[in-house]
């Protein structure tokens, strides 16, 4: 008999279940499999009713985030060999569950839009005049914050978001920071209202779980701390330099 591994999956179908339940499956163990392969095996061979999202298998589309043994992971990048003794898969924490492993991320989609994640400029250079010049050094200022794949692992890891669903959250703040740091952007002032609002950066209690959870090396905790610093500095500067002007 080939080697197997026990996979326990949280199931929930709002049409038939009053509460989530756990179901265990026995899945072949393969050394080069990832957790997602085990879930695909369940769907194809053991239980066609299991629902989850997935697509690219290469850690870039951000679809297949789930809690594996309580930790938020991209299941396409979580190796089965690290879970040889069996494991539990649950939907990402802190989100409403639609069904089984599928969570509702509409809240993030609205928050993303609220931070204006696009280039804001007073004057657009005509396309015929070519690109805005930018050095690789200038790209390095914002590069890591541009790597966010919106996989939601950081929201699942964030204890503050778990308690205060209004919190803007790690990815949205990191993406706001990405644009604020871009030499082509002039939108910092427009974003400050959302970032410095009561649900913005000041909600964060600096636990840093978001940065630990991120599978793409983004450091949202750093983005939040930098933004706090800039916001305070900006406020002090404007009071000192223009005590009566520049009131918005």
């Amino acid at each position: 008999m080939a080697e197997t591994v026990e996979v326990t999956v949280q199931r929930y179908n709002p049409e038939t279940d009053s509460a989530p339940r756990l179901q265990t499956y026995e899945v072949p163990y393969k050394d080069d499999w990832v957790v997602l392969d085990a879930i695909l095996y369940i769907k194809d061979h053991l239980d066609a009713t299991l629902s989850y999202r997935w697509s690219c298998r290469m850690g870039i589309c951000g679809s297949c985030g789930m809690n594996v043994d309580g930790h938020p992971k991209l299941t396409c990048s979580a190796h089965l060999r690290e879970y040889r003794r069996g494991f539990t898969v649950e939907p990402l924490s802190n989100f409403p569950v639609i069904r089984d492993l599928v969570v509702d991320i509409d809240d993030f989609m609205a928050k993303l839009k609220s931070v204006k994640p696009w280039i804001v400029r007073e004057l657009e250079q005509p396309l015929g005049d070519g690109e805005y010049l930018q050095s690789n050094n200038q790209i390095d200022h914002y590069r890591q914050f541009s790597q966010c794949i919106n996989c939601m692992l950081c929201y699942a890891a964030c204890p503050v978001y778990g308690m205060e669903p209004e919190f803007l959250g790690p990815a949205a703040i990191a993406l706001a920071r990405r644009y604020n740091l871009d030499s082509r952007d002039e939108g910092t002032v427009e974003r400050v209202n959302v970032l410095a609002a009561s649900e913005g950066i000041w909600e964060c209690s600096c636990i840093g779980e978001c940065s630990v959870a991120c599978p793409k090396g983004v450091d949202p905790a750093k983005a939040i701390q930098q933004t706090k610093f800039d916001t305070v500095n900006g406020a002090i500067m404007s009071t000192m330099l223009m005590p009566f002007g520049n009131r918005r």
Partner: peptide, 22 residues
């Protein structure tokens, strides 16, 4: 070329040459 520059204006982080061009 026009489309790539348009995307640059929208913020795409194209890798650059030392002179800052795409």
């Amino acid at each position: 070329p026009v489309e790539l520059i348009q995307l640059e204006h929208w913020g795409c982080p194209w890798s650059r040459d030392p002179d800052g061009k795409i």
